[in-house]
Design a binder for these strands. Structure first.
Lengths: 179, 179
DNA sequence: TTGATTACCGACCGATCGTTCGGTAGGAAA
DNA sequence: TTTCCTACCGAACGATCGGTCGGTAATCAA
C-alpha cells in the first residue's frame, strides 16, 4: 500500500495525488484506505523515513571506518547512490518535499543534517591535503549531493545499473571529466 | 505579478499556492488577478518559458563558437550556472514540474532537448579525445546537469556568488575534487 | 452458536479550489 | 457631457479534496 501510494506521489506529485487515486490503484475504496492508515500525511512520513533511514545508515557505516577522510567521503557518496537506487521511489518523494507541513519540515531538517555530515567530510579531507583547497566545503558537498540526488530525476532501475552509475559519479566527482 | 506568483510557487509549491495567495501578496482580490492573466496555468507557462529561453540562448551562443567540444561543453555548463542564478526563481519552477498537464509536458520536452544538446557535446568531446572514454555520455550529461540544477535547492542570490559557484562546478566536474 | 476482529463499503461533511460574472470607480478621449 | 477603457471588487459556482461514520460480510476462537 505504501508502495502504491509512493508510486503515485512520484507520478503526479504529492498534492496532485488524491486518496481516491490511491484507493483505485489498490482496487479498494477511499474509505477502506483509512482502515489501514491514519491519513495521507502518514504515507508521506513513512516514505520519507524509509529514505532518510537508508542514508543515515550509510553515513553511520562509513563513519566507523578507519580511513582517510577522502576515502570515507568517496564511500559515502557511492553508498548514497546505492541507497538512492535501492529505495528509489522513497528517496524521490523525500527530495521533492517543500516543508509545507511540520512533517515535511522535520524531514528537511534531517536532510540538512546529512548535508552537514558530507560537508564535514569534505572539510576534513581538505585539512588532510587530499582535496583541492580552493573550493568551499559546503559548496562542494552540495554539488556532490546534487549530482547524486539528480538520479531521482532520470535513473530507471536496471540490474547492475546502480553500480555503474556509482562508478561514474565517483570518477567525475573525484578525478574529473577531462582526461 | 509574475514575480510574485513565482515566488509563492517556490515557497509552497505550485499546487499548494492558491490564486487567493497570489492576490493577497499583490494587495488585490482574487478576481482582480483574472483581469491581468487568463489563469493559473498561464503563470506557470510564462515562468517556465523564461527559464527555458535563457538556457537555449546559452546553448545557441555556445554552439556558434569555434572551439573544441570540451571547451564548448565547459562554457555551456558555466553559462547554465549563470542563467540559473540570474533567473533563479523561474528555473526553480521549471525544475519542479512533473508533467501533469500539457503545458508541463511541453516544458519537459524542451528540457529533454537541452539535455540532448549537452549529451552531444560530451560525446563529441569524447571523440576528440578530451573526455574520459569509460563513461556513458548521456550519464555524464545528466550528472553534470544534476550538479548545476541542484543550485535551485540551495543557492541564495548574492553579488558575485554565481561566478564563484560556476568556477567550483567547473573545477569539480572537469578536474575533479581530488588533488 | 456466539462474540470479537478484520477488511471493506456507500454516503456524506466541511473546506478549499480555480474560475466566472455583474457591477463600480476613475481617468482619458470624443 | 458623454463614451469608453482600465483596474478592480464581492458574491457565487461547480468541482474536488481529505476525512468521518454507520453499517456489512467473512473469518475464527471460545
Amino acid at each position: 500500500m505504501l508502495n502504491a501510494a509512493v508510486r503515485l506521489f512520484n507520478e503526479r506529485g504529492y498534492d496532485a495525488t488524491s486518496m481516491y487515486d490511491i484507493a483505485v490503484s489498490l482496487g479498494i475504496t477511499k474509505s477502506s484506505v483509512y482502515h489501514h492508515i491514519a491519513g495521507k500525511e502518514q504515507l508521506l512520513q513513512m516514505a520519507m523515513d524509509r529514505a532518510l533511514d537508508g542514508l543515515f545508515e550509510a553515513a553511520e557505516d562509513v563513519r566507523q571506518q578507519d580511513l582517510p577522510a577522502i576515502e570515507r567521503l568517496e564511500r559515502l557518496i557511492g553508498r548514497s547512490v546505492l541507497v538512492l537506487a535501492e529505495r528509489f521511489e522513497f528517496v524521490t518523494v523525500l527530495l521533492r518535499v517543500r516543508g509545507n507541513t511540520e512533517v515535511e519540515q522535520h524531514a528537511l531538517t534531517r536532510r540538512r543534517e546529512f548535508d552537514t555530515v558530507v560537508t564535514e567530510l569534505v572539510k576534513q579531507a581538505q585539512t588532510e591535503g587530499d582535496v583541492r583547497p580552493d573550493i568551499d566545503p559546503a559548496t562542494a558537498a552540495r554539488l556532490l549531493l546534487g549530482m547524486v540526488n539528480s538520479l531521482s530525476e532520470w535513473y530507471r532501475p536496471r540490474p547492475g545499473g546502480a553500480a555503474a552509475i556509482a562508478t561514474a559519479v565517483s570518477a567525475i566527482a573525484f578525478e574529473g571529466l577531462r582526461l
